[in-house]
Amino acid sequence: MDGPAELLRDFVNTYDVEGDTDELASPAELAVWLRERGLISGSDRAVDDDWALAVHLREGLRTVLRHGHEAAPAPVADLDAALAALPVRVTLASGAPEAEPLGTGATRGLGLLVKAIMDARAGGGWHRLKVCASDTCQWAFIDASKNRSRAWCSMRVCGNRTKTRAYRARRQAPAPAS
């Protein structure tokens, strides 16, 4: 994994809104996803509560990223509820605040995602992490543009669709009466 922002992007993208497919459709699939990223050991398993919490965390992240990082209280409250359910201790051992996941297995793996949020924030990747502005897409991406103004996951696909719809709507609008 390249870094915490990439991990969070990949986690949000486990659900494909446009295709309505979910890589985390069960506790077993959650365990596989966490294991493949080195967040849990080969013998760790996930249970229904872990899975429900993972989905809540993922969708809370998607909502906050979609509404911008200075999101309204409601989207932030959803994510905060998921974060509050995870056993994580904040320490100052290194001089800067760090998240230390507690628990074992999938619970600890989800706690490492909380740590990734804090690490992305501290490392500058958090504000570059976004969700596509297209309602039908909502794919997470990292905005590498100089001024962080990118709105779509892909200009060729989602950006083009959005601009074409707007153009057609303008062309079909009746001319203003003089």
Rank of each mutant, 00 (worst) to 15 (best):
T91Y: 00
R62S: 07
A120L: 08
L86T: 11
R89M: 10
G103P: 00
L61T: 06
I142S: 12
P101G: 14
R45C: 01
D44C: 03
T91W: 01
I142K: 12
A116I: 12
R66M: 03
A99C: 14
T107L: 09
V114G: 08
A120M: 09
A122Y: 01
D119R: 06
A54Y: 09
M118W: 08
L65F: 04
V90S: 08
D119A: 15
A72R: 13
T63L: 12
R58V: 09
G68L: 10
L57I: 04
T104V: 13
L53M: 12
G109L: 03
G38H: 03
L79C: 10
L65W: 00
V131I: 05
E98Q: 14
R121A: 15
D143P: 05
L92R: 04
L113Q: 10
Q138T: 08
W126H: 08
S145M: 03
G95A: 06
A25D: 15
W33I: 02
L30K: 10
A81L: 10
R66H: 15
A54K: 02
L83R: 09
H69E: 04
E59N: 14
S145D: 04
E36V: 01
H127N: 14
A116Y: 07
A99Y: 03
R35N: 09
V55G: 04
M118T: 11
S26R: 06
A120P: 01
R121Q: 15
L39A: 02
A31W: 03
G95P: 01
L129A: 02
L61P: 01
A85N: 08
A77V: 03
G105M: 04
A133T: 03
I40T: 15
P27V: 10
S94V: 07
R58D: 11
D49Y: 06
L83F: 01
L34N: 07
T107H: 08
S26Y: 01
R128F: 02
V55C: 08
S26E: 02
G60H: 05
E36I: 00
A77N: 08
H69V: 07
A31G: 10
A31D: 07
L65R: 05
